[in-house]
């Protein structure tokens, strides 16, 4: 490292110097809060079929439902309140995006460090597998995987991990190989410390910073990929729509003027991804020493 990683306490004030990034961060925080609190603030549980009424189907924004309440963003064909569906859908999107990225990060670190530590054919197998993954576009891998696995949030997350881990494995291995030869590792070994302890205590902290920025961008990419897969009909079950599936369901209504079923979820998806990307962009500017220009 030719520059020390930016100290966390100083990060926020410097982050805040960019007004757009700050606004994006604030909006992102708001969206995440809304998604997390969805079961308490959403007017309806859109996943509970017994709460839906077919006769409330396709109401335009602001119309009154049969029970007298007003539907702010309209309803879909099953009488599902779009606002509630967006809140719950963002939950799914964020969950799929974050869990898969964390999972891929953990798996990639594990495999990358393992490869660097054990060398030999363990390394060869792991790194060839990583090459294999990186030589294919993510959408293709996820598409084929999901076709094989079937529907469900767990399966989406598995597919999303499968398309992301290789980058982290490569980076972790490269960083670990560089660290491995340094004196403190040899010293730790000479002291008789167990391999796991050495890895956790010494190698891990050195590998993490460069991956954090990438992981942030990857969350956005994973959310977008999940939406695309749902749109293509591979992904989540119809009764628990994510944003991508809501857009896909509303797609059929776009031409008939019932824009809200597809438009608002699309807007929410766009907002989520743009905010994450803006925040990640600013983080990169701050954390990447080569681009310290203010």
């Amino acid at each position: 490292m030719n520059a020390p990683p930016a100290a966390l306490p100083g990060l926020l004030p410097r982050f805040a110097r960019d007004g757009v990034a700050l606004a994006a961060l604030a909006l992102l925080a708001l969206l995440i809060a809304a998604a997390v609190l969805a079961p308490w603030i959403a007017p309806q549980n859109p996943y509970d079929l017994a709460q839906l009424d077919l006769l409330d189907g396709r109401l335009p924004p602001g119309a009154l439902a049969a029970d007298g309440r007003s539907v702010l963003l309209g309803t879909d064909d099953q009488g599902r309140d779009i606002l509630s569906a967006i809140l719950y859908g963002m939950r799914t999107s964020l969950l799929a995006g974050t869990l898969s990225t964390l999972g891929a990060l953990a798996l990639g670190l594990l495999l990358g460090l393992g490869a660097a530590w054990f060398r030999g054919w363990t390394e060869a197998i792991i790194m060839r597998a990583a090459d294999l993954q990186l030589s294919f576009p993510s959408i293709l891998i996820a598409l084929v995987l999901l076709a094989l696995l079937g529907q469900g949030l767990d399966k989406i997350i598995i597919a999303l991990i499968a398309v992301q881990w290789a980058y982290y494995a490569r980076t972790a291995r490269a960083a670990a190989l560089a660290e491995r030869e340094k004196d403190y590792i040899s010293a730790a070994r000479a002291l008789g410390l167990k391999p796991l302890r050495i890895i956790l205590a010494h190698l891990l902290p050195n590998c993490l910073p460069p991956m954090t920025v990438v992981a942030t961008v990857q969350i956005a990419a994973a959310i977008s990929l999940e939406a695309t897969l749902s749109f293509l009909g591979l992904g989540l079950p119809i009764t628990e729509p994510s944003l991508g599936l809501l857009i896909a369901n509303g797609y059929a209504y776009l031409l008939s003027g019932k824009y809200w079923i597809s438009f608002f979820p699309g807007l929410a998806l766009l907002g989520l991804i743009v905010c994450i990307n803006l925040v990640a962009d600013r983080l990169r500017d701050l954390l990447d020493p080569r681009r310290m220009a203010g």
Partner: peptide
């Protein structure tokens, strides 16, 4: 950034 974020579909 918008170009990166907008889902193709």
């Amino acid at each position: 950034i918008l170009g990166f974020s907008l889902p193709t579909f």
